[in-house]
């Protein structure tokens, strides 16, 4: 029994040490900083420092990985007291603007120099994005929450620094199309760790 346990531990250790010696299966958890563009940037000009993303990648060749992406980015801005006119109606007050973006994508990455510790990559994701825009004035609020078709090009790198772990840094551009909200786009800088298995 002890031999079997020792063998299992040895196998696990070996599988971890081999991670990132080339493009290998991994899961990454990253902290996201995001900046809205277009309509989203006009609505909330402040950058978002509240966000995270999770990526799973399965290596199909030495250089090509496919997988899924999920992220949650929270944009927020408090607008000073101001007046907003819609036709004959005018509203004045302090406005709190929130926008949550939750993209869920299938993705593919091409990894360069996959046999080195420093591995640059480019990737593309396609899927859906849940947008939730909430505008609060006084005790009232208006909310729009469409699901949109989404795309995400990405560039970044993995840097292998220990057994089974790597630093991952990526720059992404999420775009959501369709729905009443119109096109929603934002840049994201993601930094975190990738864990192989």
């Amino acid at each position: 029994m002890k031999k079997i346990i020792a063998l299992l531990i040895f196998c696990s250790f070996m599988s971890m040490t081999s991670v990132f010696s080339q493009a290998e299966n991994h899961i990454s958890i990253q902290y996201d900083m995001s900046f809205g563009t277009g309509d989203l940037g006009d609505y909330i000009s402040a950058g978002s420092f509240r966000g995270a993303s999770v990526q799973y990648r399965n290596a199909v060749t030495d250089n090509v990985l496919v997988g899924i992406d999920a992220a949650w980015n929270v944009f927020y801005e408090k607008r000073d007291y101001d007046s907003y006119t819609y036709g004959t109606m005018t509203l004045s007050g302090v406005q709190y603007r929130y926008q949550n973006q939750v993209p869920l994508l299938v993705a593919a990455d091409y990894m360069f120099r996959s046999d080195k510790d420093f591995k640059p990559y480019i990737g593309l994701g396609i899927g859906t994005m849940y947008s939730e825009r909430n505008t609060q004035m006084g005790i009232w609020y208006v909310e729009e929450n469409p699901w949109q078709f989404a795309m995400k090009p990405e560039v970044g790198f993995l840097y292998n620094f220990s057994f089974g772990s790597a630093l991952k840094l990526g720059i992404k551009y999420y775009t959501g199309f369709g729905g009443d909200l119109g096109t929603q786009g934002y840049f994201t800088i993601s930094t975190g760790f990738a864990f192989g298995f």
Binding site: R50, V74, Y76, K78, T88, M89, T90, L91, S92, G93, V94, Y96, Y98, M137, G138, I139, W140
Partner: peptide, 18 residues
């Protein structure tokens, strides 16, 4: 990390005209 500013009573004041 969900954002939540401190809100004062006067921050809730709303003026509507039509």
């Amino acid at each position: 990390c969900y954002p939540d500013d401190t809100m004062y009573y006067e921050d809730t004041d709303l003026v509507y005209t039509n």
